[in-house]
Amino acid sequence: MEDQVELKRVFGDVYFRARRDQNTSIVYAHWYGSQAVETVKAGGYKFLEMIKEKPYRKLLNSNEHVIGSWDLALEWAQNEWAPQMRKAGLRYLAYVVPTTIYASMTMEMLIQRIDDEFEIRNKEADAEAWLLR
């Protein structure tokens, strides 16, 4: 797998990008637009592939540009994705919280569900700085 991946919708608009940064040992991920269960799972499985192939302990997951809620995928993220990521080696998870209220509420619900799996920070200003420590 490449050090950078991009997932697109049927009509070509990007909804997910992720890249490994070998200098910082961080996987950076950015989500765009509205998300559905299928897009959340596709991006989540890409994270998992990247971590399994080349173990990185840190993930900066930016939802800054997400619109709306994706709460239908929360159960999957809690029960399948988070435990698999933990098993693959992920330990530190920093979230950049979206500006829209519904997307922010969904992020907060996810953090509450998986905070026992990882060390999590979700303040935009210091998310990357925390991972770099």
Rank of each mutant, 00 (worst) to 15 (best):
E80S: 12
E80I: 12
W81M: 11
A82D: 08
A82H: 14
P83Q: 10
P83S: 09
Q84Y: 07
Q84P: 09
M85D: 01
K87D: 15
G89R: 10
G89P: 03
G89M: 11
L90Q: 05
L90K: 02
R91W: 05
R91P: 05
Y92N: 09
Y92I: 05
A94I: 04
A94T: 06
A94D: 03
Y95G: 00
Y95Q: 04
V96F: 02
V96A: 03
V97A: 11
V97P: 02
P98R: 00
P98V: 04
P98E: 03
P98T: 06
T99I: 08
T99L: 09
T100M: 05
I101S: 13
Y102A: 13
Y102W: 09
Y102R: 03
Y102K: 04
S104F: 00
S104R: 12
M105W: 15
M105S: 10
T106D: 03
M107E: 06
M107H: 02
E108C: 06
E108T: 08
M109K: 04
M109H: 05
L110T: 03
L110P: 01
L110H: 01
L110E: 03
L110W: 00
I111N: 02
I111S: 08
R113L: 07
R113A: 12
I114S: 03
D115I: 02
D115E: 14
D115C: 06
F118Q: 02
F118I: 07
E119D: 13
I120K: 00
I120M: 12
